[in-house]
Simulated scan of single mutants.
Amino acid sequence: MGFLSLMDAFMKEAALITGTYTATLLRALVGAAIIAPVWLIRRRGWPSRNALKLHMERGVISASMALSFFYALTKLPLAEAIAISFVAPLLTLYLARVLLGEEIQRKAIFASVLGFAGTLIIVAGRLGRDDVSADVWLGIASLAFSALLYAYNFVVIRRQSQIAGPVEIATFHSGVGGALLLLFAPFFATVPQAGSLAPIIAAGVLTIAASMSIAWAYARAEAQALVPFEYTGFLWASLFGWLFFREPVTLPTFAGTALIVTGCWIATKKPRKPAAAAST
């Protein structure tokens, strides 16, 4: 989460300098250029058909998710954007019902209500300021779309990490996403500004580090055990938002984040085992 949050800060800087699309495309290509040679040297064969399908699926999701999220970062403070994106784990519960047939428990519904309330508080705090503009609405809408994709990403990455290693996953994550974005280069690409190259390269390196770390973690633990660690991203985002852009963290953002985190904690908390069963 630290890698991801720092990457977000570098990407916000790059997107503000050279545009969201160009920064997102170059980040993916830089990441692929770094990790692909490592995978090619270490690989023992081409990925299976099932693995390749998941790589393609996640690459498309990640490219769309990244583009919409980084666009939102250019319109909203870093900590606020990260906080609103925390609704993704709650959305995952409903996607798991639709895609995996999992039963939605009462506590999950209650958690969703808390998460939705927390999101409303953060959004209301933002809209209650004097500097609200059409760009802010575009940022919030883009962030909502990104959160939905991120929720689906939880379902895909769990399957992906069971049949492929971290290096392979990181390679196709950047490679497929970069290839997809490259299709739109004739329409949206711009000449990158000199000041954007350093943060883009840094973001590419951090993307690989984060992708491999997440793949390694999801191969060893269930998603519900790892979801709570997502919320450390708010602390990182608050720090990097202040260090990079001097963005203050408002009281509504803190309050809304507390509700969202509480809701997700309730949703992912495992029932305590009876003492007898535990001792046995």
Score class of each variant (00 low, 15 high):
10 F>H: 11
10 F>A: 09
11 M>A: 09
14 A>R: 09
14 A>D: 00
20 T>C: 14
20 T>P: 14
21 Y>H: 10
21 Y>C: 12
22 T>K: 15
26 L>F: 12
31 G>E: 02
32 A>P: 06
33 A>H: 08
34 I>F: 13
38 V>C: 00
39 W>Q: 09
43 R>P: 06
45 G>K: 13
47 P>A: 11
48 S>V: 03
49 R>P: 00
52 L>T: 06
54 L>V: 07
54 L>F: 03
54 L>I: 10
58 R>S: 15
58 R>W: 13
58 R>P: 15
59 G>Q: 09
59 G>W: 05
61 I>A: 03
61 I>W: 00
64 S>C: 14
65 M>L: 14
66 A>K: 04
67 L>K: 06
67 L>H: 02
70 F>C: 09
70 F>N: 05
71 Y>I: 14
72 A>K: 11
73 L>A: 10
73 L>W: 07
73 L>P: 14
73 L>Q: 13
74 T>L: 08
75 K>D: 03
78 L>P: 11
84 I>F: 02
89 P>G: 01
95 L>Q: 03
97 R>N: 03
97 R>D: 02
98 V>L: 04
101 G>H: 13
102 E>M: 15
108 A>W: 00
111 A>Q: 03
114 L>P: 00
114 L>S: 02
117 A>F: 01
117 A>T: 10
120 L>R: 05
122 I>K: 06
123 V>D: 05
125 G>S: 10
135 D>K: 10
135 D>A: 08
